[in-house]
Design a protein around this nucleic acid. Sequence first.
DNA 1: GTTATCTGACAATAAGGATTGTCAATTTTG
DNA 2: CAAAATTGACAATCCTTATTGTCAGATAAC
Lengths: 224, 224
Amino acid sequence: MAHVNTLFMASSRKARLYGGMDADERRTERRLKLIDAAIEVYGEVGYPSATVKAICEAAELTERYFYESFANSEALLIAAYNHVVGHLHEEMTAAAAAAGHDAEARLHAALTLYFTRLKEHPKPARVFLLEISGISPAVDAVKLDAGRVFSDILVPPVLDAKHGDRGAAATLLSTGMVGAVISIALRWVSKQYPQTVEDVVAIAASFCRVALTEADRRRDLRLR
Amino acid sequence: MAHVNTLFMASSRKARLYGGMDADERRTERRLKLIDAAIEVYGEVGYPSATVKAICEAAELTERYFYESFANSEALLIAAYNHVVGHLHEEMTAAAAAAGHDAEARLHAALTLYFTRLKEHPKPARVFLLEISGISPAVDAVKLDAGRVFSDILVPPVLDAKHGDRGAAATLLSTGMVGAVISIALRWVSKQYPQTVEDVVAIAASFCRVALTEADRRRDLRLR
DNA sequence: GTTATCTGACAATAAGGATTGTCAATTTTG
DNA sequence: CAAAATTGACAATCCTTATTGTCAGATAAC
């Protein structure tokens, strides 16, 4: 029994090392490289024109490794999107939390972080924070979810036992708020940042404030 | 000299009639049919998946006529977009004008018309009033221009000899406003109109009001 | 070293669609 | 009716890209 079929090697035992890395580690690394390359390429030519080949070249990997990590282009798009947006959202949440309990202060902190990052990383910005639509229902769903998260960070939904789901009007208010912020960001980025972060934040904040105060006003009306 | 080369027929003389129509008229009619068909197909499968063939079938014309009127798919997209949006913008302008001089009344009138039309014509709505981005620079430019027109209708720019171009901040405010309205519209349409037109208009208007009052406030600050 | 595994380059295949070309049938003109 | 113009159907071609497959060379394990 000196020879053991690799198929029976439980995941507990490590696979052969290459370049000092586990098989799993190598796969994960390649996956990462592909995601980074995708962001780069999307930023240059846009997702629709980004071919698998071009992304693989940018990642310095061959197509074989593309299909090792992703079923198709769309899967990579989604992974890349979640990568960028997930990261950003975490940071925004942290920034808001650090700003304390005042709604205005939290809003300001989160938006400042958002626009600061946008200015630091134009490529991911252009592609992901902005427009991926009409690709497929799956992608749209991902985007929709990201919008919801974004909205919740800026204006945390009021927890209300009686109204588990916020009202339909509140949803439209959130939608409008996110739409406004993202549109502003898109233009700001594509015009190469003509205003200071501070100025853009102030403008974006004014739209968020509407969503905030309108939601309050409407809730008061309902509960009165 | 009984026979005259058709190449020398000046455009003043009419070409042979078919179905009671001039050659030019027939071409224009086919062009129109293609645009209508495109709107239909885009609304069903989205622009990226809309093939030339499918559009031609919907138009009951063959590919030959596609290339008679359009250089490529993108040209048709732009034509269709301008067709729908141009029409809508005209109507909105008229509605605003009919509402008189009060800014609030004009805003309400224009938005009401906008959302009413959206509800009446879901297909064009979904495709055009919302998202065509990342297709190409040309298409993006068209969309950008449409956004500007849209904004000017909702909140006519103050004519100011001293400040021929409105301030950069005002541009971002317009951008945010349009983004908010369009995002709201997108969700409203895709959720199959859960609110009344009146309610949606009220919510959209609250975002427009920000743009309006903020712009005023900023101008006052500058001129004080 | 020898063997098993992994990697990189690239060929082969497949699929889908755009664009152009052909031609018989139809319609108008005279 | 005969001739010319126009139309509709469809084939042929051309391209681009995704996806799979092959294989020689490199690397690690023993």
